[in-house]
Design a protein around this nucleic acid. Structure first.
Lengths: 242, 242
DNA sequence: TGTACATCAGTGAACGCGCGTTCACTGATGTAC
DNA sequence: TGTACATCAGTGAACGCGCGTTCACTGATGTAC
């Protein structure tokens, strides 16, 4: 459900006729998405605090009026962008945590790959992540959706872990999945804040962080870790792009 | 080092004479702190986004001019408040992680107590934490100090763990301390965001969260956990107030 | 196929509110003699 | 001890910038006949 005004209410008795005017809808839809893309780009370049309506529409080669024809107000821009991002994240999760994908892989190795993948994704989306973290403090809509996303991801992780329950000593897998997601998301969110503000500080490189987070998860779940296990992998699960 | 204008440059040749005018300094110092307190209160009540200079000075029963006599600009208010908070946090850490305090306590129990204490502190300071997280995204000063604080805390934790190195399998205690702090701070920061925006959602209660985080840390460090160990304690280390 | 009309989509100058910041002034506190 | 003066501290009305939002208008696309 997007904020764009589509012809939802037009000719309610003949919904099939929606097809007769695709060009118009397409044009405005393109504008809508160009604005969203511009906002994303603007945030990546300069952070949320520099996000202005005029700046965004200029970047989108659109105009202020066009903006307000698509979005009720500036808030909706961030909200909608966040929505789009969360949908992508959930789709990615569905692929990445599909139990079938990991059927042949030992559990520690699978978790290691998944964690490095997530670390990687957060690394690439740092500024966007940071923007939403920052805005969530004052926009319940975004905070709520973030929490909902975490819940959905935890659900997927639970299903994944449940398939291997016999290998996992932790007594409550549902709780465990929830806590794992909180730990990973939380750690990586605050890591974003560090990396964006202190470029090239003496902070951990991604593979190290991934390895240690994996160790933490395995330890938390009670899965024994052979000290010399290759905890990190360069390769990512195929078909799942950040 | 505070932002308040003290008589740093007055009579550089006779520093002892600073003592002759305590009353004046005291008056302005009080104003300074009243403004800081008001800002803190304002954030706790309504979040950073509602923080205005006029709002703060009204609450502090001061005036706009007095504000600008103490602070160069609005930014400095947040920066200074954060500084004050970090100093308190570090002092608290020094007490809480003093190896002497825990000499008689088994390591898992000590860690459990420490973790619940930190969970508790973050719980009480939710809104302040959230404010700084949010602002850190656009204010490198605050992001940097947050990182520095994490580093200092990690250093304290390292010293604490190093005293018990024989009980801890993790091969690199320095790295481990660093990662523990990132995990705890990160998880609790993002937890703040959830709790503030979704009052009474179906989220974990503090003692549960503390217990699971303790489990994660113990697992990460490689310390064996007896499944039925009492992981959480109501009592906090004496002498360490949130 | 062409012309008239209706609706959709986009334009950008102008408005106005909120809030940070300034500044001319008053009051309080301390020093000199 | 008292009076004159200097400095510190505080006051709050007024200013002005930035940015979100509005609105009267133009252009584009589709429909009717």
């Amino acid at each position: 459900m997007s904020v764009a005004s589509r012809d939802d209410k037009a000719r309610p008795s003949l919904p099939a006729l929606r097809w007769v005017r695709p060009p118009q809808q397409q044009r405005s839809q393109k504008t809508f998405e160009r604005i969203l893309d511009a906002a994303e780009g603007h945030i990546v370049d300069g952070g949320v605090q520099s996000l202005t309506v005029s700046g965004v529409v200029a970047r989108a080669k659109s105009s202020v009026g066009a903006f307000y024809a698509r979005f009720p107000d500036k808030n909706a821009l961030l909200t909608t962008l966040h929505e789009r991002e969360c949908e992508a994240a959930l789709a990615t999760t569905d692929e990445a945590l599909d139990p079938g994908r990991w059927a042949e892989v030992p559990l520690p190795e699978a978790l290691s790959n998944i964690v490095s993948f997530v670390v990687n994704v957060f690394g690439q989306r740092q500024r966007l992540v940071l923007a939403f973290v920052s805005v969530a403090a004052s926009q319940p809509t975004i905070a709520r959706r973030r929490a909902a996303l975490a819940g959905e991801v935890a659900e997927r992780l639970y299903r994944f872990l449940a398939g291997r329950a016999d290998e996992i000593p932790h007594p409550d897998l549902r709780l465990a999945a929830d806590v794992c997601v909180r730990i990973i998301f939380g750690t990586l969110e605050s890591e974003s804040s560090i990396r964006v503000s202190l470029p090239d500080g003496e902070h951990l490189d991604e593979s190290r962080l991934g390895a240690e987070l994996t160790r933490a998860l395995l330890g938390y779940l009670g899965i024994p870790v052979s000290t010399r296990m290759p905890l990190s992998r360069e390769s990512q699960p195929t078909g799942v792009q950040p």
